[in-house]
Design a protein around this nucleic acid. Sequence first.
DNA 1: ACCGATTCGGAATAGGCTTTCCCTCTAGGC
DNA 2: GCCTAGAGGGAAAGCCTATTCCGAATCGGT
Lengths: 346, 346
Amino acid sequence: MPALPHAAPATLHDVAREAGVSLATASRSLNGSARKVNDDYRQRVLAAAARLNYSPNFSAQAIAKGSTSTVALVVSDIADPYFSSIAAGVIRAAEAEGLIVTMAVTERNPERELELVRALRGQRPRVMILTGSRSVDSEHQAALITELTAFTATGGRVVLISQEGLPFNTVVVDNYLGARALANALVAQGYRTFAALTGAETLVTSRDRLAGFADGLAEHGIAIHPDRVVRGEFTRDGGFAAATELLATGLEQVDLVFAVNDVMAIGAMSALREAGIDVPGDIAVAGFDDIDTARDVTPALTTVNIPLTDVGRQAVALALSDTARTGDEAVRVATRVILRASSPAR
Amino acid sequence: MPALPHAAPATLHDVAREAGVSLATASRSLNGSARKVNDDYRQRVLAAAARLNYSPNFSAQAIAKGSTSTVALVVSDIADPYFSSIAAGVIRAAEAEGLIVTMAVTERNPERELELVRALRGQRPRVMILTGSRSVDSEHQAALITELTAFTATGGRVVLISQEGLPFNTVVVDNYLGARALANALVAQGYRTFAALTGAETLVTSRDRLAGFADGLAEHGIAIHPDRVVRGEFTRDGGFAAATELLATGLEQVDLVFAVNDVMAIGAMSALREAGIDVPGDIAVAGFDDIDTARDVTPALTTVNIPLTDVGRQAVALALSDTARTGDEAVRVATRVILRASSPAR
DNA sequence: ACCGATTCGGAATAGGCTTTCCCTCTAGGC
DNA sequence: GCCTAGAGGGAAAGCCTATTCCGAATCGGT
């Protein structure tokens, strides 16, 4: 059977012909321009469009009016609840503005991120939102800045999520202060000896949280023994592995394990459980992010809340705001320590 | 300060001029057409492009060659791990094919789904993948079919996920059989009296799972008392609420609560725990989907595994396969009962 | 009844790119 | 050395829509 030739989608031209009007009139009828068109004609055009199942070609529209209505969102891993919650906020806010969201996933790879941004530029999105995986690795960093600058130079808006210090609009999550507050709260709960599970050395988020936590402890004269700081991937499995590694070094005197994010904390809890260690009886655990499932694990996870959906929403709002034209606006979102059963007072 | 006029992005034209070659040559150099271009010229073009920070305009390309390279993905709720895992699979597979993914969220609203599909058509995506929220509500259903048919009629590929019976390519998850197998397995574990938490009546997925579960029990002469089937939203909070409602009716003799999906099951577990009921000591729980966190809650959740990421991958593969041209191909994915601590043998 | 001011349909153009078609130039065959 | 073929650059057509510019028709005022 020969590949049956698909009819091409109806074009505005087809609609105009079908309705017996000019292209201009058809266009004006269908997307209510400044110019009015006689209601008679309008109806005819609308009817013709319906009859032909017409759907406007966004690409053509984009090219004709020189701007698209898409928001490009870059995340590390959409299956990670941290990112999917932010994405949910971005999508909701974008749709409310009549914008379409395109999404790309870096798989936590800076190189890939650069490629993606480069490719995404081709879409001529109104806004590009980058979240996660910012690293201090300066090589890709520089190239990324170049690329983003080229984008903003041509009118694009860039918003970074949770990555301070770059010359772009940013929704800032105060990882440092949040972690410090958490440390204080945990000390107040009676904890004294800590271990930490952290992400790759180059990950800014991971660094900030660890630094904040350490500084918070330092206020009380407490330090984390270097052997008790274990690196792992920034994922559930990374947390599981890191906790396992930590176990190997002996955890007898440790009161509480702080994981720099919730998914790691949850992985760690599973690892501890499998090793026959009771949480929080033997060791308490705390995370960061307050992802949805943090309250559903047992014991419920002590963490630092970030209003993730809101972060997404704010990112869109920031991108669209007039003040953001300058490109170095910062919006801060508040974090909040949430004490739950995984770190009872002792 | 006057809004500084942004320079327009460099066009292919600019690149050609900068390189001192024709438009055609520039185009050919940059995206390797069938025609070869002298390496000398090529280099000149590439250099010019780099110098100008050129990025091809996808809209223009799309319009010029009459086809885009985007995949449109429609999900109910991206923050739900079921959908985000599928999305991860879709995105990975799409990116491997050089396709861009655009995503839209229905918020579980059929009307919204229809609107979105209508809008998405305007993107002229190569592929449209719809997942979730299929309902038997025939009104929107008919309109949706019309819209999708118009799309396929013009060469677009449609793939439905987990929604049999519609005249489109489908990745079929055998909800019915999976649930039946689960019921059998649970009876084998020694459970005899069941309650169920289910989604909206019109949700096909929910219906199929409940029916399969009921039929599985029926094989052993067991029926679920109608009062013990509670409807709730297809979400964590829905599960929490439904379980709370169930508690009000008294659960003394119930051995196990089956929730038609994992997020509901996890919500239910939290509700039971808050009510002071021990899981699985007092009541066992089982879910469906095997989302990542199912293994991390305590007790780990008994469920039916669906290879979610793979489902997404398969959807893309199916859409791109030649055999899918007919538009009613079905790919089945296997489900697998996973017994965990939430339903120990008794 | 006539003139200027609106209103509104239509033709034409623009917008960035791909691709066909034409034509020149070079290499190879005899 | 001449002719043919093939390689490859360039001009131009075309993809689909929005919009500007024109001109015709209508309306109101006097």
